[in-house]
C-alpha cells in the first residue's frame, strides 16, 4: 500500500520526466547506430545512443562503443530523445555520454563489466556517467566499486556515486556515506544525506543530526528530509531546533519530518511554526500536527 501523499509526491517527481515528442526517423540497425555513435555532430551521436537504448539488450554488440562514448560531455538539448531520460525537469541539457549511459543501463547486466571499468576512466565525465549507470543498473556487484568512487578526486563523481549507493539501497554503503557527510563540497554532502535517507538505515541518525548544523542550507534541508525518511526517534529534538533555522526550506522540511517521526513533543513547537513568516512552513506545520494527532 502506498499512502496517498506519497503517491502524489511520486507522481510529481516522475511526470516531468515523461514529456517530449518522438523524433521522426526510420529505424536503424545496431551496426548503423554503432557507427553513428562516432558521428561528428553531437546531436547525431546523442540520437544514436537514444535509439540504441530503445533496442534494450539487442544493443549488446554496441557495448564497447557506448562505453567509449561515456566521456562525451558535449551539450545537447534534452529533446533529442523522445523523452527526458537523464535529468529532472530543471535540467535543459544532456550529452551523448549521459545518453550512452542510459543505453548501457537498458542493455542490462551484460554491460556491467564495461561500466565498472569506466569508473576508472581518465575523464571524470565518464566516471560520473558510469556511476549513474551503475546505480540505475541494479547489479549488486557495483557496491564495492561505487564505495571506492566515493573517494574520487572530482566532486561530481563522488556525488553521483553517493546517489548510486542510495539507489542500490544496500547497507554496505551506509558507513562510507556517513563519512561523506563531511565532504568539503556541499553538493556532495547533500547527495550523501539524500542517499542515507534513501537507504533508511538507523546508523545514519547521528551523522544526519550533525548535518542539521551544516553551513549550507541545502545540506541542512536534505539532512532534515533524511531524518524523516529514516524515521529516527532521536531526531525529534534536533528537528524541533531546525524549526528555527534561518532558511525557510529547512524549516519546512523539518516540519515534514517531525510529522513523519510522529513525536507528540513536537506539537507545541509546530504550533509556534503555524505563525512562521513563510507560508510553506505554516502549511507543513499544520499537516504535521494533524499527522501526529491522528
Amino acid at each position: 500500500m502506498v499512502s496517498r501523499p506519497v503517491a502524489i509526491v511520486l507522481l510529481l517527481s516522475v511526470i516531468p520526466a515523461w514529456r517530449g515528442g518522438r523524433p521522426v526517423q526510420l529505424p536503424r540497425d545496431v551496426a548503423e547506430l554503432t557507427a553513428a555513435l562516432r558521428a561528428s555532430e553531437p546531436v547525431a551521436r546523442a540520437r544514436a545512443a537514444c535509439e540504441l537504448r530503445e533496442l534494450g539488450d539487442r544493443a549488446v554488440p554496441a557495448i564497447e562503443s557506448l562505453a567509449a562514448l561515456l566521456a562525451d560531455g558535449a551539450p545537447v538539448e534534452t529533446t533529442v530523445c523522445e523523452r527526458r531520460w537523464w535529468r529532472g525537469p530543471s535540467e535543459q541539457q544532456t550529452s551523448p555520454g549521459e545518453l550512452a549511459a542510459g543505453a548501457l543501463v537498458a542493455i542490462g547486466t551484460r554491460a556491467y563489466g564495461s561500466l565498472e571499468s569506466a569508473l576508472g576512466a581518465d575523464a571524470w565525465i565518464a566516471r560520473r556517467n558510469a556511476a549513474w549507470a551503475l546505480g540505475a543498473l541494479d547489479d549488486n556487484r557495483a557496491v564495492r566499486p561505487l564505495i571506492s568512487a566515493l573517494g574520487d578526486r572530482e566532486p561530481p563523481v563522488r556525488a553521483q556515486a553517493a546517489w548510486a549507493l542510495g539507489a542500490l539501497d544496500r547497507r554496505e554503503g551506509v558507513e562510507p556515506l556517513i563519512g561523506l557527510l563531511k565532504d568539503e563540497h556541499a553538493d556532495v554532502r547533500r547527495q550523501a544525506a539524500w542517499a542515507l535517507g534513501a537507504v533508511g538505515d538507523a546508523r545514519a541518525g547521528s551523522g544526519l543530526i550533525e548535518a542539521l548544523r551544516d553551513p549550507e542550507a541545502r545540506v541542512r534541508s536534505q539532512a532534515a528530509w533524511a531524518l524523516g525518511a529514516v524515521d529516527h526517534r532521536a531526531a525529534a529534538a534536533p528537528l524541533i531546533n531546525a524549526l528555527k533555522d534561518v532558511d525557510a526550506h529547512v524549516r519546512r522540511q523539518a516540519a515534514w519530518s517531525l510529522g513523519v517521526v510522529g513525536d507528540p513533543r513536537a506539537v507545541e513547537p509546530l504550533l509556534a511554526a503555524l505563525k512562521d513568516r513563510d507560508a510553506g512552513v505554516r502549511r507543513q506545520a499544520a499537516w504535521a500536527i494533524g499527522v501526529i494527532g491522528r
Binding site: 500500500m1 501523499p5 509526491v9 527526458r84 535529468r87 529532472g88 515534514w256 510553506g280 499537516w287 494533524g290
Partner: peptide, 27 residues
Amino acid sequence: PLTVFVRTLLKSSAICLGIAIAVIHPS
C-alpha cells in the same frame, strides 16, 4: 510507505542525481 516511495522513485531511473526532497501536502 516512504520507503516504498523512495524505492519506486529510484527504480524508475527517470531521475538522476536524485535529490528528492519530499515535502508532502495533505490531500
